[in-house]
């Protein structure tokens, strides 16, 4: 009895010594390791038996948790580049297990396009989803947006928006399709798209991401409106954003990503951040004093 109690006490003591370095090790474990690798989908299907939907959902949640963790770190000024490749692999695996899982499509759309710039990959995934989620207007809405905004394929965009409009019964998609056909108001459309996305978003990390981007696009739009007004009044395109501010057409715009707005040679409004914190970092590496305005 005494021997057993002593052994238990020793074990508890050893546990106390071990648990702190053990927890620290797990906490600091590289993200790639934490996100893990998906075995072949065929193998997963076999092991999952009749719980394929559960396994798919758990893969999506794993990616969401991982991404949320990174966002929290970014809030604390710790920049850890997300492992987009693993995220994409996990989400592709999850839709093979459960082709109806909307979270997977939605999240893949959010980072494959804006962050990874894999528009074709995102569209292929969404096209795959459309075969199953035949009632869902979001998927054609996403593809429509990708085609128009990123790929500049307005004919395809209009086709997908038409489909989204038919499914949703809303005129918004048809309206967007019409505008895309005219290739005008890109910023307005991005704002409309991001507002729709942000409104229904429940995941705080993703919502914050959208809000930030939305803020940047609204500022861009403000500069565009001022630029157009300047042209109307002065009969010529402004050369710099400073001209707009000093002429009283615009209060100083603020890029939430930390960049500075400038006008390109054709008058297009751009920002040095390229709508990403990484853009500002790259810029800071450049020589001080380099002019932002490019003509």
């Amino acid at each position: 009895m005494i021997k057993s109690a002593s052994a238990a006490l020793v074990c508890l003591f050893l546990y106390g010594i071990l648990i702190i370095p053990f927890t620290t090790y797990l906490h600091k474990k590289p993200f790639v390791e934490k996100l893990g690798y998906v075995p072949s989908v065929t193998a997963l299907k076999t092991v999952a038996a009749d719980h394929k939907e559960l396994v798919a959902a758990s893969l999506v949640l794993k990616v969401l948790m991982y991404f949320g963790g990174l966002f929290e770190k970014a809030d604390n000024q710790v920049a850890v580049p997300p492992d987009y490749m693993s995220m994409s692999r996990l989400l592709h695996g999850s839709v093979k297990l459960d082709p109806y899982n909307m979270d997977a499509y939605y999240f893949a759309q959010s980072f494959l396009t804006w962050d990874v710039k894999q528009y074709k990959l995102a569209n292929d995934l969404l096209d795959y989803g459309m075969k199953y989620r035949t009632w869902d207007w979001y998927l054609p809405f996403f593809v429509g947006f990708n085609n128009a905004f990123f790929l500049k394929d307005y004919a395809s965009a209009a086709r997908y928006y038409q489909r989204a409009g038919e499914l949703s019964g809303s005129d918004l998609s048809r309206l967007l399709a019409g505008r895309y056909m005219q290739e005008s108001g890109q910023t307005d459309l991005a704002i409309a798209y991001l507002t729709a996305m942000e409104k229904k978003e429940r995941n705080q990390a993703v919502k914050n991401n959208y809000q930030l981007r939305l803020k940047a696009f609204r500022e861009t739009r403000r500069v565009e409106v001022a630029r157009d007004r300047y042209r109307e009044v002065r009969g010529a395109m402004p050369a710099t954003v400073v001209q707009l501010v000093s002429g009283g057409f615009l209060s100083p715009p603020r890029d939430p990503y930390g960049g500075q707005f400038y006008l390109e040679a054709d008058g297009k409004v751009a920002t040095t951040s390229k709508y990403a914190f990484a853009g500002v970092k790259n810029l800071s590496k450049q020589k001080a004093g380099e002019p932002y305005e490019r003509h």
Binding site: A57, L61, L64, M65, D103, Y106, R202, N203
Partner: peptide, 11 residues
């Protein structure tokens, strides 16, 4: 289930 972004009820 509330961790889901778009399909809480489905989850």
């Amino acid at each position: 289930a509330s961790l889901s972004m778009r399909q809480v009820t489905e989850l």
